[in-house]
Design a protein around this nucleic acid. Structure first.
Lengths: 157, 157
DNA sequence: TATCTCTGCTTGATTGGTCAAGCAAATACT
DNA sequence: AGTATTTGCTTGACCAATCAAGCAGAGATA
């Protein structure tokens, strides 16, 4: 016999509750901790690292602003500002897009590539130590699928 | 035969990689989505909801600023400002602490409690639809423990 | 009890992000 | 072709968080 008002969903079970709380903490702690590791270690904030990394994974080491913004989970204006910071450090160059004169490509410079090469072990280590380490013995592929759903699915209202 | 320089950790396996990427997306999307749900639904931002909720779970519906800040994952100054916003809405009152005249208690008002009662179903529904739904069939307790570790453990360097 | 240090919180300055408005190039419409 | 609309990005205004400095009360020390 369901509630005709259909308002309140099931309250959380204790396990659900602790999972939600723990996830909340991880969402707060993890990015800050990894960023702090990167900055302490290599003077490269996580946001900037992410931009360089996404650029480096492209065949020509260049990408349009909107695409890069999406991959970095950043607004377009946020991306503009990140690229500005990287440009003043000489790690990225901006080039007008050939096939569309409104567009810009962010291009990884050699200095940027070098910076990335020197930094990724630090990032990798942080991710392992602070996160993956605690999931040994888990079915990571299955977990990943669930998180992908949670990250992409529009909720079924 | 291990690397004598001991520098670079194991690169990520494909499964690890997709888990990390998916978690990154969830960490970005989930708080914004839930906050948007709450604001769209009840005009109550997630940060303010969290503060009210933590206050309500205390026997006297009051808490010292530093304790509340910790539970909300907020700096002390961030908490001061959140409480200011809540105070101007009449949802919280501030009282000098009796046993320590430097301290303040944030006290949930009746209006604040009412606001919380009217809002929690929205929060609960958002958490279910956007997150828990995708973890049906998982061992939630085990997952929660892993996340707790990741959230609290200092990394083993 | 006078003073020194420490603690709890607030305030000021800064930061890294967002959204909204603006601008120039591209595209669609007539 | 000429105009209207759309698109890609930047800029300006804002906002919620942080850190650092300040302040008042508490506790320790002489």
């Amino acid at each position: 016999m369901s509630n005709p008002i259909a308002a309140t969903p099931q309250p959380l079970t204790p396990d659900e509750e602790s999972l939600v709380r723990a996830l909340g903490q991880v969402m707060h702690v993890l990015p800050r901790a990894i960023d702090a590791d990167m900055v302490g270690d290599r003077q490269l904030p996580l946001t900037e690292y992410t931009a360089l990394m996404n650029l480096s994974e492209t065949p020509e080491r260049r990408m349009r602003m909107n695409e890069l913004a999406a991959l970095c989970y950043l607004s377009l204006s946020g991306m503009t500002r990140t690229i500005m910071r990287l440009e003043t450090q000489g790690l990225v160059r901006r080039e007008r897009c050939e096939e569309d004169a409104r567009g810009w490509n962010a291009v990884l410079t050699d200095a940027g590539y070098a910076r990335l090469e020197e930094s990724w072990p630090s990032h990798l280590a942080a991710v392992r130590r602070r996160f993956l380490q605690h999931f040994e013995g888990f079915d990571l592929a299955r977990l990943a699928r669930a998180f992908q759903q949670a990250g992409t699915a529009e909720p079924t209202d």
